[in-house]
Design a protein around this nucleic acid. Sequence first.
DNA 1: CTGTTTAAATAAACGGTTTTAAACGCCGCG
DNA 2: CGCGGCGTTTAAAACCGTTTATTTAAACAG
Lengths: 342, 342
Amino acid sequence: MAQKIKLSTIAETLGVSTATVSLALRDSPLVAASTREKIKEQARALGYIYNRRAASLRTSRSGIIGVVVHDIMNPFYAEILKAIESELDRDRQTFILSNHYDSVEKQRNFVETLLQLGGDGVIMSPAIGTPPEDIRLAEDNGMPAILIARSIDGLDVPIFRGDDSYGISLATNHLIGLGHRTIAMVGGTDQTSTGRDRYQGYVNALRKANIEVDPSLRIPGPRTKQGGFEAAVHFLSLPQKPTAAVCWNDLVAIGLMNGIARAGLVPGRDVSVTGYDDLEEAAIATPALTTVWNGQSEVGRNAARALLDKLSGSHEPDGIHLIKPEMRIRQSTGPLKPHPEG
Amino acid sequence: MAQKIKLSTIAETLGVSTATVSLALRDSPLVAASTREKIKEQARALGYIYNRRAASLRTSRSGIIGVVVHDIMNPFYAEILKAIESELDRDRQTFILSNHYDSVEKQRNFVETLLQLGGDGVIMSPAIGTPPEDIRLAEDNGMPAILIARSIDGLDVPIFRGDDSYGISLATNHLIGLGHRTIAMVGGTDQTSTGRDRYQGYVNALRKANIEVDPSLRIPGPRTKQGGFEAAVHFLSLPQKPTAAVCWNDLVAIGLMNGIARAGLVPGRDVSVTGYDDLEEAAIATPALTTVWNGQSEVGRNAARALLDKLSGSHEPDGIHLIKPEMRIRQSTGPLKPHPEG
DNA sequence: CTGTTTAAATAAACGGTTTTAAACGCCGCG
DNA sequence: CGCGGCGTTTAAAACCGTTTATTTAAACAG
């Protein structure tokens, strides 16, 4: 590194002022076209690198947007992130990603760091147990927040997520329509708004079909393949012998199917399984997974757009924006076999 | 947002200078303990937020480290990233993540952005076709680079990756040991150093066992589950009827197994399949995948450590650091059946 | 009193942006 | 022909919020 090239370096070699250089590089009409070209050419020749922290110190806009979710490696979030990324890219915003792994503290650290860096805004899928203050911390310091996938009460910020209650009832109804009566719900927790909504959707569908709700058919657990895989043992040993499972998400469903297959049963024939999310993977699982599309791409795109709009001054409506889930029927579900115990 | 709280705000309310406040907040021994406590207390009370861009403008250290890989949602990279994250976290470094999707341009943009933000260093798994200049751009501007997973010739920067040639030969030897003679290699490309190394490992193992190398048994393709799934058709229609497949990675292997299962064959019994990487998922696939551990966690941890060491002034040795892969035998491989065609 | 410590203040960076002011060329008018 | 006025370019300087050398002031020991 010979020497840092800055505006003044360019200015000196050309015999103009730094102000002129600054304006020229940003295509200001205040500087003559001929001067502008000369300056740009020189900047290129010298390998000038724009110093964003200096600029942002003055302008108080950093071009940085933070995104924090439970786990970026989880395909559900990954698909949302992909949508956010492509939306932000088009606006030349840099985005900083982080997992919080449902640690409120890790999440707060991230928000704090983002504030220190002068982040322009933040998109978050809040950690379980996030106090509203942690979100207000961002807002109060001039960094607007948008929530995705999960809600938090007592805040008026825009929220984008799927309609969980409705989505799960779609899956449950599908199974009921196939003749199933003993339907377990596998994976996830009831400690989040999402969890409560999903359980509610499951309960509602059963009640509407006059099926008694048996709480012991609710098997909570990690929302991962591993979690589904391990739940299989519990699932298969239930005294009520469920013939179908509504899973928290596709990962749990695929894990559960693997676990069921290990036990010598054939998922889709002996046991019907539904997923949730419709990950890319769902279509190539064996058997192909019946699931509910949860609008990941929509959530990501709309959330990013909403934030960008807010940053450019337009008044976004706060409150919840629900995406309508859709049923995707494949081979992991089938009609109830006449004599499941015979 | 009532008003931005800065050092001078604290200084004024306490009747001291900003210098004293700055020093106090960083626990400098130059300020009396009593004063320091008063200042810290006041900072907390006012909700002061440290402005990193201002500080970094002065100190020319930003605490930002960039990481760019092909695709952060790919579990192989995801596992590396997890290791990097936990290593950097411990040093309270902020890290900025990006995909380049093998676009050299997207990668260059990222490096450029990182330079503008004053990044302290960058860890990259270079895009296919990355010119050495793009890495030198970082180095020349005082931002040290570390390469992971892939090599680039003509550079003297530290590189951390698995020993691909050796690793694939482990898998191939395992299959040969089980009696297989017609072994296909599925997925991936030969356009990267990694690709050439892996193919070489496969070829070497066959030659050593006096098995003729048949180029038509090489089925290149995307390095994804989808890619493996789609390759199944091609694989099953090969005239030589391979009895086993060495796959580019676990994703391709799992996809291929799904494709084989769809065709009514049983992977692990009718066709032996090996993966590569040993993702968490490999162990719970059905059948559990025989694969080669590729040292993701080691690669990530060592690369991060190397960068941090370099930043703190120690002289890291440049050049390639190879991680030794290890065989993981599970149920997706088995002995050659006596009469595969009968 | 002088010479050291110790504690805190002053002021100059860091590298841009932006407001304000000055220089310049050109025009029309008296 | 000289001068005020105007529009276009460019220069100068203040500012953004920190850090850090350098000074200053106070306290204390010899």
